[in-house]
Computed example of a mutant assay.
Amino acid sequence: MVSLAVANRVVMYYQTQYQNGQYVSVLPLIGYVTHLFLAAIHLNMGHTGPDIVHLNNNQPADPFFDPMWPELAQLQGNGTKVIGMLGGAAAGTYDCLVDSLFDTYYPALKDVITTYKLDGIDLDVEQSVSLETITHLIQTLKADFGDDFIITLAPVASALTEGGNLSGFDYIQLEHNIGDLISWYNAQFYSGFGTFFPDDQYIDIVNYDQGIDPPRLTALVLTNPSNGGGYVSPDNVVTSIHELMDQYGTDWGGVGGWEYFNSLPDSSQPWEWPIMMKNAMEEQKTKMEADARAKELAARREAEAQPGAWSRLFSRLSSSARHA
C-alpha cells in the first residue's frame, strides 16, 4: 500500500488574545494546527530589565497573559510547535539588535524564549535592517538554542523574487549565505505584495534564482478582509492548495493565516479556517494515494502479463521451427 506523509504545515498567527474583553482560547486548534506563532514580541529601546521585552502592550509575565501560557504548553504537549514572532509592523525592535546594542537587548529576548519554552522564533522584519544584523541574530539564536530550534522569516512575498521588500536586506542573498540556518519562510501573500490565488506567484518564488524549495515556503494569507488588503476566501485558498499539491505532492510548505481570532468562514468559530486547510490537504493526500495505488496496480498487471506474452511468443516461434 502506498502511504504519503503530509509534509506541509497549517500555521496560525495569534496576536489578539482578547476580543470584547473575552479571552480567545487556542485549545480548539489542537490536532489541526502544526505551528502557532505568538505575536508580537517587541524590544523597547531605552528600557531596562524585564521591561525590555513586551508581548504586544504588556510584559510577557503580566497577569494579562495568565490564561494563555498554560494553553500554549498544552498545545505543545499535543504536538503543536509554539513560535514567537519578533517584530512586525511596529518598528524599532531590530534597532536594538545592531552590533553596538546587541549585548544590551538580546539577553532579554533570550530569557523570554527560555522562560516560556518557545520552540522557535519568527523574524518579521518590517523596517530597514542590514544583512549583517539579521545574519548575526540568526547565527546567535542557532548557537544558543541548537539545531532543533526553529528559525523562520516572514517577508512579503515579492521580496523572495527581489521585488517589493519591507526589510532592507536582500532575502535571496541571505538565503545564499545562511539558508541552512533558516527553517522556512512565511511569505506574506497580501497587502499588495502578492496573492496566493491563483498560485503563480508561489511557483515563481520556487523557480526564482537558486530557488526556495517548496517545503521551505509557507504561504501566509489573511483570514478576514478586516485584517488588511488582498484577502483571499478560504475556498480559493483550498483551490490553490489542491493545485500546488498536484504539482509538488505533499512536499510543500503549506499555508498560514493572519490571524486567528476573527478567521472566516465563521469568525465566531475561528478554528474552522485551519480545519478547512487541514482537511483540504488530507483530501488531496487521499486522492494522490488512490492515484498512486491505481498506477501500482496497472504496473503490476502489466508486469504479470509480460512473462505470459513472452511465453506465448516463444511457443509460437518453437512451433514454427518444428514445422519448418
Results as ranks from 00 to 15, higher is better:
Gly179Glu: 00
Asn44Val: 02
His42Ser: 08
Val98Cys: 02
Asp111Pro: 03
Cys96Ser: 14
Val24Lys: 15
Val98Tyr: 12
Val206Met: 15
Ala159Val: 02
Asp111Ile: 02
Val11Tyr: 08
Ile203Thr: 13
Asp95Cys: 01
Glu302Gln: 02
Ala299Val: 03
Met277Ala: 08
Pro60Leu: 09
Arg316Pro: 05
Gly146Tyr: 12
Ser3Ala: 11
Leu137Met: 10
Asp180Tyr: 00
Pro307Cys: 09
Thr140Gly: 13
Met276Asn: 10
Gly256Leu: 05
Lys287Gln: 08
Ile178His: 00
Met245Leu: 01
Asp204His: 09
Thr48Arg: 14
Thr104Cys: 06
Leu160Arg: 14
Leu244Cys: 07
Glu259Gln: 11
Arg293Asp: 14
Met12Gly: 10
Val112Glu: 15
Leu174Cys: 06
Met85Asp: 11
Ser158Pro: 09
Asn177His: 12
Asp291Ala: 12
Glu132Asp: 10
Ala280Asp: 12
Thr195Cys: 06
Val6Arg: 15
Trp184His: 13
Glu126Ser: 00
Asp62Tyr: 02
Glu126His: 04
Tyr185Gln: 09
Gln269Trp: 01
Gln210Asn: 09
Trp184Glu: 12
Ser130Ile: 03
Ala299Gly: 06
Tyr171Phe: 14
Val206Thr: 07
Gly84Thr: 04
Val238Asp: 15
Asn58Thr: 04
Val53Asn: 04
Val237Gly: 12
Ala294Arg: 12
Thr286Ile: 03
Ala89Tyr: 07
Asp122Glu: 06
Thr48Cys: 11
Ala157Gln: 00
Leu43Cys: 09
Thr93Gln: 14
Gly146Glu: 14
Gln306Trp: 13
Asp235Trp: 04
Asn262Tyr: 05
Ile30Ser: 14
Met45Pro: 07
Asn44Lys: 11
Met245Cys: 05
Ile138Met: 15
Ala294Glu: 13
Thr135Arg: 11
Leu220Lys: 09
Gly92Glu: 01
Lys285Ile: 03
Asp124Leu: 07
His42Lys: 06
Val11Cys: 14
Ala40Met: 05
Asp170Gly: 05
Ser318Thr: 03
Ala280Arg: 15
Leu313Phe: 10
His35Ser: 01
Thr161Leu: 00
Val206His: 00
Asn224Val: 01
Lys110Val: 01
Ala5Val: 03
Gly228Asn: 01
Ala292Leu: 02
Asp51Tyr: 09
